[in-house]
Nucleic acid binder design. Sequence first.
DNA 1: GTCTCAAAAGACAAGAATGTCCACTTGACT
DNA 2: AGTCAAGTGGACATTCTTGTCTTTTGAGAC
Lengths: 175, 175
Amino acid sequence: MAALALGFSLLSSLRTPTLSVSQTAEYALRAVVWLAHKPGECQTTTQLADGTLVSPSYLPKVLQPLGRAGILSSQRGIRGGYALSRDPEELTVLEVVNCVDPIHRIERCLMRLTAHAGRLCPLHRLLDESIASTEKLFRATTIGGLLRKEPSVKPVCATSVATIPLAVSSSESTA
Amino acid sequence: MAALALGFSLLSSLRTPTLSVSQTAEYALRAVVWLAHKPGECQTTTQLADGTLVSPSYLPKVLQPLGRAGILSSQRGIRGGYALSRDPEELTVLEVVNCVDPIHRIERCLMRLTAHAGRLCPLHRLLDESIASTEKLFRATTIGGLLRKEPSVKPVCATSVATIPLAVSSSESTA
DNA sequence: GTCTCAAAAGACAAGAATGTCCACTTGACT
DNA sequence: AGTCAAGTGGACATTCTTGTCTTTTGAGAC
């Protein structure tokens, strides 16, 4: 149905679409994965913004909670920046997401129904299931795990970033 | 972790939390399930708003796309209102959600990486997986299916709605 | 000590999602 | 035909998310 992806504005697909995580959480994941590529290395927000294609004026907002939570370590001053302060193999996607934009399960019926006190109605149980499965998936995935996937292509970001509009199809399966 | 749900503001949990579907989509589902209880019956937006606890001035905005899509039929005039015009057994949750707030899969890397042309990086593949599993769950669930669940409790809504703040614990399992 | 670099913090702006309101149209019933 | 109930459509308000900018604070280099 919505699978044919040809006719829509290319630029519009740069944002995280509805459902899934918030824009901010996605930015946080980009930054963390990028830093995980460079163990022990300090990166300034400018460098990070270049690498992850996140707006350099917004990125600090995303990184600060990660720093406070101890996922990143921040260093001020001349050789400062951010570095990953956790073992990527032990750091889950869920932790990163929950840090900047916590996932909330549905705990009670969203409509105030006396009959539903304590339990969820089928509709909200379904919605909660969908959240639960995302939560489970994110909890089961570590940043290190993401790094190891698809070894032929650099995990999140290429070393040099395309400044051209977008690299579409062509030389995709023929190479 | 976030499972103990005692100390937080009761009122704040009435909105659909982050992740999951949008507020609008959740309202649409409430209305459709409510109408599915009353086959063939016409309900005014005021009645629907009462029944589903959605703001009566916002609900029309939610129902109109459902009407245009043929999921609901609308009738103007003195004995007008909305009625379900599809067989609940054939109507999926996904259709309702997609009607008011379409689910978009992630089709290409959100960062413009030449190296990722045509394929997704591990991070965005993960995010897409989470969307995909929700999509699958919603496609597999029909409105009729929701109605049949948990027969002891009225499926989405009780017939009479609580006007009191919230029905918390007490006389929950002792009754 | 002071100068420079870079994060921290907060004020502010833009945009989207949500919610409200009102004038208009439609249809049924008298 | 007239009237009243109810959806339609659009303008407007509010709130939340995202994004920008400026000032302050801290850490190292000289």
